[in-house]
Write a protein that binds this DNA or RNA. Structure first.
Ligand SMILES: [Zn+2]
Ligand SMILES: [Zn+2]
Ligand SMILES: [Zn+2]
Ligand SMILES: [Zn+2]
Lengths: 131, 131
DNA sequence: GTATCGAACGTTACATCATAACATATCTAT
DNA sequence: ATAGATATGTTATGATGTAACGTTCGATAC
């Protein structure tokens, strides 16, 4: 468990819930887990998530409408991040590949496209679940 | 405009709406465009979309909760597809890169991960809008 | 200290996206 | 004709996300 000293109470609660979880959580699932801590409305969760995403402490999985704590919260890997999502057990692996980043950068440059953020999600089965 | 001879009426209508559109459309926007053709309920659109996605004639943009007609409906590029989405004008470019596909395959093989489908979406500004 | 400003918070109501469940219709092959 | 599979139509509901409002809190300036 990481420190989060500079986080607000709600941000801390939300990040804590994500870190404690086995896999990705929807905003409403997070809310349910934090009712006992005083959270009552979706916006409280969404606002905290927005900040956590900005800070790189959490990520949004677009193909699941769900969120995970960053697996590498200390090394702020600013480059492109990829996620492998097991559809059986829900486990998420976060990784990055420099060659992939370079290829996408090259495509963007050739097209004159200015990327702001990129999402990359591989759905499938992890080693355990494929066995 | 492509032929779609083997499509059902609803599938044909939905694909037509996507092809006519400048950019990605949400399911409900498609529904609104097809009210005059007799469509009344979201499920009619979602069911048609499911088939079109299966056939590779349309794609879902996860980061937008929206859909586009395939830009290459004839060459069924079975490999990984990437999308560049302009956040200013909404234009979507569909492309693929063999090196990227190979790198992801290599990662998956090394991890023992069995991919079923991959989404890759670059958000940013197209050349025109960046000028 | 207290005035001021901006960020975070709390709450209600609402908007948007997607599916469950069930009844009909249509198409295809025997 | 009949049986099975696929597509359709309809209602209701679930799941996800935001607008708009006012309040509270914490830092800086005077
Ligand atoms: Zn991360
Ligand atoms: Zn698994
Ligand atoms: Zn395509
Ligand atoms: Zn543009």
């Amino acid at each position: 468990m990481t420190e989060h000293s500079d986080l607000t109470r709600n941000q801390s609660l939300v990040l804590g819930a994500l870190e404690k979880a086995e896999g990705p959580l929807s905003a409403y699932t997070i809310l349910d887990k934090l009712r006992d801590d005083g959270l009552r409305a979706p916006l409280q969760v969404y606002r905290a998530l927005d900040k956590l995403l900005d800070m790189g402490l959490a990520h949004r999985l677009e193909s699941l409408n769900a969120f995970v704590a960053c697996a590498h919260p200390h090394c702020h890997n600013t480059g492109l991040i990829a996620f492998a999502i097991c559809e059986t057990c829900g486990q998420v692996s976060e990784f990055s590949d420099d060659v992939v980043r370079q290829r996408l950068d090259a495509w963007a440059k050739a097209e004159g496209f200015r990327p702001t953020r990129t999402t990359m999600e591989i759905r499938g089965q992890c080693r355990k679940c494929a066995a």
